[in-house]
């Protein structure tokens, strides 16, 4: 075979293989979404949002799990935003180039993709075992530990994008560095910071593993943060592995809800991010 033909054929095979890979990947993902929608949409009724979880064989919804998820993710995000934005600000504006700064950044990156179940173990040892009880607070802290690295990372990246001229202009008026950061730089980076928060929120709203031994779960509606609390992911886990058909159906509904929530948060974050870049 002459050289030119050989090159063309190799290239053709390669292009075909890449296309095939894309086809396989997309098929698998579409199949998953398809099952999720077909099995979940049927059970999506009003009582899912208004009634708490049923005993096997009776009617009920996921209200207690939804409320629990919102409460714990909410508290977790508050903690993560405070710590993450401050830490990201430190990396971008103050100590990012010091040795300590490099260590913090590296460990933040590691924490960013550390197995979430280990964070659950840590919070169990920290907040559950010493106080002899599972609690929603513990769950929220575990979620916060997972979201903080994301917020820190995006905060640092976004602040680094702000032009130095803006900092100099603020300082040239005699403002302190802290004041310039709070009243100018954070303002200029506002949408970026919100995006970081949304990304973190999307990540933790579907987390199951760290909640298993912190907030545990609760079959009743509960809004006391010092007690065990249900959450969508742990309830799905429990229902899906149960032997009851109606629980399994509810698990699909819950999975669909989580997927929709995570997708919409991510989409909003993307739209915001695009507007910042414009």
């Amino acid at each position: 075979m002459d050289r030119a033909l050989f090159r063309r054929v190799t290239n053709g095979i390669f292009v075909g293989a890449c296309g095939l890979a894309t086809l396989i990947a997309l098929t698998a993902l579409v199949l998953i979404l398809w099952s999720l929608i077909t099995k979940g949409i049927g059970g999506l009724e009003l009582k899912v949002f208004t009634e708490s979880q049923p005993a096997p064989g009776s009617e009920g919804g996921l209200a207690n799990a939804i409320v629990g998820s919102i409460l714990m993710c909410g508290l977790g995000m508050v903690i993560a935003l405070v710590v993450g934005i401050l830490a990201g600000t430190w990396l971008a504006e103050y100590g990012g180039q010091t040795t300590y700064g490099h260590v913090v950044r590296f460990l933040n990156d590691v924490l960013l993709s550390a197995p979430s179940i280990l964070v659950g173990l840590f919070v169990y040892e920290l907040l559950v075992a010493p106080f002899h009880g599972f609690s929603a607070y513990a769950g929220a802290v575990a979620l916060a530990i997972l979201a903080t690295p994301i917020v820190t990372r995006t905060t640092e990246d976004i602040l680094a994008l702000q032009p130095n001229a803006l900092r100099e202009a603020g300082m040239a008026l005699g403002a302190s560095r802290a004041f310039v950061i709070r009243s100018i730089i954070w303002k200029a980076a506002r949408t970026g910071l919100v995006t970081g928060g949304l990304l973190g929120f999307a990540r933790i709203s579907g987390e199951t593993a760290p909640l298993l031994f912190t907030s545990l779960g609760n079959q009743f509606m509960n809004t006391h943060m010092s007690q065990p609390m249900a959450s969508l992911p742990t309830t799905i886990f429990q229902f899906a592995l149960s032997a009851y058909d109606d629980w399994q159906r509810l698990a699909w509904v819950g999975a669909l809800l989580i997927a929709i929530a995570v997708l919409s948060i991510n989409i909003i974050g993307r739209i915001l991010a695009r507007e910042t870049h414009r």
Binding site: T89, L118, F122, L126, T152, S176, A178
Partner: peptide, 29 residues
């Protein structure tokens, strides 16, 4: 200024350190 600057800087530094402490906490526990 002087106080605000010191406090804010300290807050940022503590947050960064807390982050490291979280990872260290995981290992130690």
């Amino acid at each position: 200024n002087a106080w605000g600057e010191t406090l804010f800087r300290a807050a940022c530094f503590s947050a960064a350190t807390l982050l490291m402490a979280a990872l260290a906490g995981v290992v130690i526990s």
